[in-house]
Design a protein around this nucleic acid. Sequence first.
DNA 1: TTGGAAATGATAATCATTTCCATTTTTGTG
DNA 2: CACAAAAATGGAAATGATTATCATTTCCAA
Lengths: 121, 121
Amino acid sequence: MNKSDIKLIAVLERTGGFASAQELHQILRREGDGIGLTTVYRALQSLVDDKIVDLLRREDGEAIYRLCGDTHHHHLVCKSCGDTVEIEGGAIEKWAKTMAEEFGFRDVGHTAEIFGICSKC
Amino acid sequence: MNKSDIKLIAVLERTGGFASAQELHQILRREGDGIGLTTVYRALQSLVDDKIVDLLRREDGEAIYRLCGDTHHHHLVCKSCGDTVEIEGGAIEKWAKTMAEEFGFRDVGHTAEIFGICSKC
DNA sequence: TTGGAAATGATAATCATTTCCATTTTTGTG
DNA sequence: CACAAAAATGGAAATGATTATCATTTCCAA
């Protein structure tokens, strides 16, 4: 755990949701921090190794990060305008757990997103 | 649906499991087919659009493809060996529908995958 | 203070995927 | 069959995220 790790944790706390390495780097730069992209990747990697942040993937495969321990939630995304709503997924948690048990899987995580057209569009 | 699409379906049938675009291209090349990488990507994209193949992601973000059965299903994927199990997701369908209604979304689809370590690994 | 280990960041390399575009193949029609 | 329009193809270059390299800087215990 070094300075960069802490900076990244701080940004992730502030932004709350998911962010890609590139986005996190831009945010820090915008705030006047001269941190390098390499360091951002390194810090994120080490935080993932230490299980301090989760790594998931956007639809296009880009890696996105979030602090573990955030309340786990899912997204409802508008295909047209990109607007997203955070939603509860209690049913999903149960489903994932049940299925994993049934097939003898352990260390399970899951992804679940809903896509559609929002009322404004 | 054109020749390339059919070639890709044939390879996917033969190989059975998941394969990346690059792998599929190499397989076809090895078999003497001069198909171009661009065409492989194009064919896969169109097959995904037509819901003939599923697209998911390896842990490193690379896209992998697989023929889908006719029933809508989800996947339980082993992070270690890549083995996948098709599972039912009745709860998910309901959840997606409910959430979409609640927030006024229409034309909704969803993704839901579970990742873990299978009993063999 | 100092020597070495760890951290940093600019740059270049890598790799999957997309875009561009010129060429070939297919298709519909007289 | 001939022929033009449309669709398909594939090589090369572009793109964009991520990783590797490596020289330089910072940290810290002795």
